[in-house]
Amino acid sequence: MANSYDYRSVGPVDQFPQRMGRVVRMEGQEIAVFHTTDGKLYALENRSPGPKGGTIVEGIVSGEVLFDPICDWKINLADGQVLAPDSGQVRSYPVKVEDGQVSIGVPEKADGKREG
């Protein structure tokens, strides 16, 4: 089954400062949205993959990589994968930009219900 997503509009691009994360709340989920220097937007679950917990929205963004503010692990913004030498993964959400408007996708299940 191909993944289908339910996209929600979260406002214009210029609400998202470059290289600084911003929190978006979507159906009780906390999502951290990052805007890179190249103008790309990424959305990750706002939860550190490291052992100490915490949030990631406050991390330093370098290119396509986010430095976790708590454990300093490197996280690939595109897919949430933690880079070597550490390992783990942060949940990622697809982002669409149309006419300067950003929307974030939540996966839709076969029965039409969204994953919680």
């Binding site: 339910d6 996209y7 929600r8 509009s9 979260v10 406002g11 609400q15 998202f16 400062p17 600084m20 911003r22 929190v23 978006v24 709340r25 979507m26 159906e27 949205v33 929307s103 974030i104």
Partner: peptide, 15 residues
């Protein structure tokens, strides 16, 4: 101020 401190609320339900 908004960028640093305000959260964005996504609308609930489908577009």
């Amino acid at each position: 101020k908004e960028q640093l401190f305000d959260e964005i609320q996504a609308p609930s339900g489908r577009q």
